[in-house]
Design a binder for these strands. Structure first.
Lengths: 158, 158
DNA sequence: ATAGAATCAGAATAATATTTGGAATTTTGT
DNA sequence: ACAAAATTCCAAATATTATTCTGATTCTAT
């Protein structure tokens, strides 16, 4: 399958759906200047080709009592495939870890961890993450405040 | 306004809408075991109270040619309010920086940066970020691969 | 117990999504 | 350049969903 080329109209659709994932097809079609039928067809194609992976509600963490958000940088004892697999499998069991990226630099992984408070954060780290046998060291950055959290990616023009 | 208490049904709604932001109200009502009318009423209340902030399409960065994603840790020359304001204002101008968090630890901010390739990343950093006068130092972590990217927050049960 | 508020189901209506058929445009191969 | 093929589009018809409304039931606080 060729990597599917989308045109200017598709890009506009992607911009709009990133900013408002629940816009109606009727409104979307007005915004991009097409009738509803081809608009829907384009959206479906973007979904079917996997360019649009999914849609999600974004919640206010403070209002659902998730006050302590952190980034945690993790180093493994050795970075062979076996160890990485063990780590990934363990991470996937933990709902509070919502992101896990393998990164360059002096650490191996960076995690994003969402918890209710410091106590639950500490408990999670001590009992669930430190306990993963392949983990060597961890370094936490507690998020004090968030100044930008855009869900709109900068799609290149060409 | 009291901090609005949501019950078990609301929590289920939040779980479902985080996982599938475009589910129809009809299907949602079936999933939670209520009729459409009160289901919609609950969703609207969750939106109006700000617990649900927004809805967004999630795209495949590789397929839209955004192959280089990084975390960048930034230290400012001094962390007074004035400098922070200057920094935030500058960051908000840059579409490629989709997240900006003020954090504890040896750096001041952590950014998430989305670009097409290494060349565009370097250009962005040199010409847009390094140029911000209050920036002292930067340290990059390039994302090699993403093992988890969940849009579902672990809502505390009580 | 009882008034008031909140929540619910079911039905009616309004809006939207989705399908269909065919015209117009673009693309492709010669 | 040309014609066939493919793509893209619109407009209209139908199916599905959202939304509103009414009244019954449950919950809450006194």
């Amino acid at each position: 399958m060729p990597p599917f080329k989308f045109d200017k109209i598709d890009r506009k659709i992607l911009d709009i759906l990133q900013a408002d994932g629940r816009i109606t097809n009727a409104q979307l079609s007005k915004d991009i200047g097409l009738s509803p039928a081809p608009t829907l067809e384009r959206v479906k194609k973007l979904e079917n080709t996997g360019i649009i992976k999914s849609y999600h509600a974004k919640l206010d963490t403070a209002k659902i009592d998730l006050g302590v958000n952190t980034y945690v940088m993790v180093s493994l004892k050795a970075h062979n495939k076996s160890n990485i697999d063990v780590f990934i499998d363990a991470i996937n069991e933990v709902d509070e870890i919502i992101e896990c990226n393998h990164v360059t630099g002096s650490h191996d992984f960076i995690l994003k961890v969402i918890t209710k408070d410091i106590a639950s954060y500490q408990k999670l780290m001590l009992e669930r993450v430190s306990e993963i046998e392949v983990v060597d060291s961890m370094q936490s950055m507690v998020i004090l405040s968030t100044f930008k959290d855009s869900k709109v990616l900068p799609i290149p023009s060409n």
